[in-house]
């Protein structure tokens, strides 16, 4: 591998590791501004929170003993995902993409499984809500990436192609938004109803690790479609591609944050119906345009 490509992957991985808590800090600041609050003192606040949580004593509820192992496993998965994401601009093929998707879905399953271990009723209700949405959204995730990949691969400058691109982009970013578990889909936590729901029993370093993994997952869900698009569509040098991916990802991440501030929390029955309807409509539209 060329030196410049190795450097690019290294820089990109560092950005993937450093950005998520920072972006969360920025999102919190923007949210506070919209809500006429001061918000956290600095955009690094989420980083400070994570560091402080890590410094707290380790308390493991009896039912969560295996949870620590699972979280560690999830962290290993995340590192591999970040490496592969950074590698996409250098070389992308359908096999690598398949591995990335499998890893991301596995990561979601592991994070859900950690909460299922808890015997707390709020945690159980929260995680089952999360799983219900995940079942719909993971299917959407697989389909959207496939549809998006096909669209870009077969893209040509025609109205039909542009329409297909528009639908696939819409699909992939809605899936990405829902996967980020922001409002109105933060039903697994739903503070006023479930008192933190699926994360109610996490504290100290366990909460820090969970929070960090969750934020990285959020960012990767945004960055993945951008990486695919840039790698296939633009074919720039790896370093420029990687920087461009992060710039676009940051913009979209912040945009998602702004959308979340403007919405209320959904209810599990409404959320599932709405998502299924939206995904179905987009898929049908895409198929209709493709067949014309």
């Amino acid at each position: 591998m060329a030196f410049i490509e190795t450097i690019s992957i290294g820089i990109s991985m560092l950005l993937y590791i450093f950005f998520p808590p920072l972006l969360d800090g920025i999102e919190r600041k923007i949210k506070a501004k919209i809500q006429t609050r001061y918000g956290p003192p600095t955009v690094f606040q989420t980083w400070y929170d994570i560091i402080k949580l890590i410094s707290k004593e380790l308390k493991i509820p009896p039912t969560l003993q295996y949870g620590v192992f699972l979280l560690t496993l999830a962290f290993s998965f995340v590192i591999v995902v970040l490496y592969l994401l950074s590698y996409i601009p250098v070389s992308l093929n359908i096999y690598m993409l398949t591995i990335v998707i499998i890893l991301i879905v596995s990561l979601h399953s592991i994070l859900a499984f950690v909460s299922i271990l808890s015997s707390n009723p709020f945690s159980i209700i929260g995680i089952f809500r999360g799983l219900t949405i995940d079942i719909v959204n993971e299917m959407g995730f697989l389909t959207s990436i496939l549809v998006y990949y096909l669209t870009i691969k077969t893209f040509n400058p025609s109205i039909k192609s542009f329409l297909l691109l528009l639908f696939s982009l819409l699909f992939v970013f809605i899936v990405s938004y829902v996967g980020s578990k922001r409002l109105p889909y933060d039903l697994h936590e739903a503070e006023p109803e479930l008192a933190s729901g699926s994360v109610i029993e996490f504290s100290g370093p366990i909460l820090a690790l969970y929070l960090y993994l969750h934020l990285i997952d959020r960012y990767t869900m945004v960055a993945l479609p951008i990486a695919i698009g840039v790698a296939i569509g633009l074919q720039l040098s790896p370093l420029i591609s990687l920087l461009l991916i992060h710039v676009i990802a940051v913009v979209i991440y912040v945009f998602f944050g702004v959308i979340a501030v403007l919405l209320g929390r959904s209810r599990i029955d409404i959320a599932v119906k709405t998502l299924m309807l939206i995904y179905l409509i987009i898929i049908l539209l895409w198929i209709v345009v493709k067949l014309i």
Partner: peptide, 16 residues
């Protein structure tokens, strides 16, 4: 009420 519905922006502005 808005806070309980997850619409914290409305909550903040109502209190403002």
């Amino acid at each position: 009420a808005l806070h309980l519905l997850g619409y914290d922006t409305g909550f903040m502005h109502s209190w403002r």
